[in-house]
Amino acid sequence: MIETIGLTKKYGSFYALQDLNLTVEDGSVFGFVGANGAGKSTTFSILSTLLQPTAGDAFVNGMSVIHNPHEVRKQIGYMPDFFGVYDQLKANEYLDFYGASYGLKPKEREVLIPKLLELVNLEGKRYEYVDLLSRGMKQRLCLARALIHDPKILILDEPASGLDPRARIEMRDILKELKAMGKTILISSHILPELAEMCDNIGVIDSGRLIAQGSVAHIQAQLQSERVVRVKLAEGMAAASSFFENDPFITQITEKPESNLIEFLYRGSEEDQVLLLRKAVSQGLPILSFSEGETDLEDVFMAITKGAEAK
């Protein structure tokens, strides 16, 4: 549905984007993560036909953003990271204006606008002036604006930026509903855990280069050399610590006597973990639970970008 081939944007000697090769499958949610200034908005501006690349090309539903920009615009709904609203318009008037701009007839707009407001949980704000809406409500209204012409593809640049936790949850739930409707969604953020909750795949961009791409689990497996393992015991903390100290894959053992818990970093494979647990049980250790701790995705992101800087 979306494909970039050698996409590059250069300003003088500075590369805002360099040789980006990216594929987003039909009906999927693809998260684009990177620090501020990494190249996310540049990519989205090119895909939305607002910026011409220096080299390479991008295709939206098979159409080139360079050679068929008008056709591409019919396929996409674009929500920029900074957007303007017409403060003197009410919410329904705001959507009516954009619907008319896309050539929708008055009768079509009359039927469509209430449905869009309901989709983004703003049906009760239909007659409110836009400047009286909260930031979260304005974000959702602009999402409705991006949907006014029923695009197949949504390009959302930092849609949850500046939102409080409740508003973030509301935005996430709306995006899940849009995915269920068959929309292809390309969404950016500088907050990796935020994207991990809703995306099928993610791409990590740093200094204009795509440095990792795949599912969250796949990227973690590629980049995380150590796992945190937690072992809860019925008793025998000292004996258990002594046992785990002898394993060549284990480092940084931490005892938590108050909860009969031992934590350690583990460098072995999943198969090695299975063998370790079997051996521990055969040695008579009274293990109540043996589990891998959740990975801090922000730490993974820092490890990825640190590695890229070292190259």
Rank of each mutant, 00 (worst) to 15 (best):
Q139L: 09
L154A: 06
S64N: 08
Q213Y: 02
E3N: 03
G56D: 05
K138S: 05
R145D: 10
A234I: 01
Y98M: 08
G124P: 00
L288R: 10
K74V: 03
P53S: 08
S259V: 13
I153E: 00
F14Q: 01
L288S: 10
S101D: 01
L147P: 11
V111T: 14
A308I: 05
S291T: 12
K306F: 01
L119K: 13
N121Y: 04
L50R: 13
Y129L: 13
V111C: 05
M302H: 06
G34V: 11
L17D: 06
D296Y: 03
V300L: 15
V274Y: 14
R278I: 13
Q222H: 07
N36F: 05
A160H: 01
V274M: 13
Q220Y: 00
G34W: 06
M79I: 07
H67W: 00
D296R: 09
I148S: 03
E309Y: 12
Y94V: 01
D247A: 09
G236T: 05
L163Q: 06
L50Q: 14
G103C: 06
S161F: 05
G103H: 05
R145N: 09
L143K: 12
K311L: 14
S215I: 01
Y78R: 08
Q139N: 11
S188L: 05
G56Q: 08
M137H: 09
L7C: 08
F97P: 07
I304E: 08
F44D: 01
N61R: 10
N21H: 14
T4C: 12
H149V: 03
R209Q: 13
E123D: 13
F264P: 07
E235I: 00
L17T: 04
H70C: 09
C142G: 10
K10P: 02
F249P: 00
V24I: 15
F82S: 14
A55M: 03
A91L: 08
P165A: 05
G214M: 08
R267D: 09
T43Q: 11
K232D: 09
G84S: 13
V281S: 14
E93Y: 02
S48E: 07
L119A: 09
R109L: 15
I262P: 12
M181A: 07
T305N: 08
K40Q: 11
I46G: 11
A221M: 08
G268K: 02
E25D: 15
I76P: 01
G62A: 06
E258V: 13
L119T: 09
K125Q: 15
A217L: 13
E309W: 06
F30W: 10
R126H: 06
F14V: 07
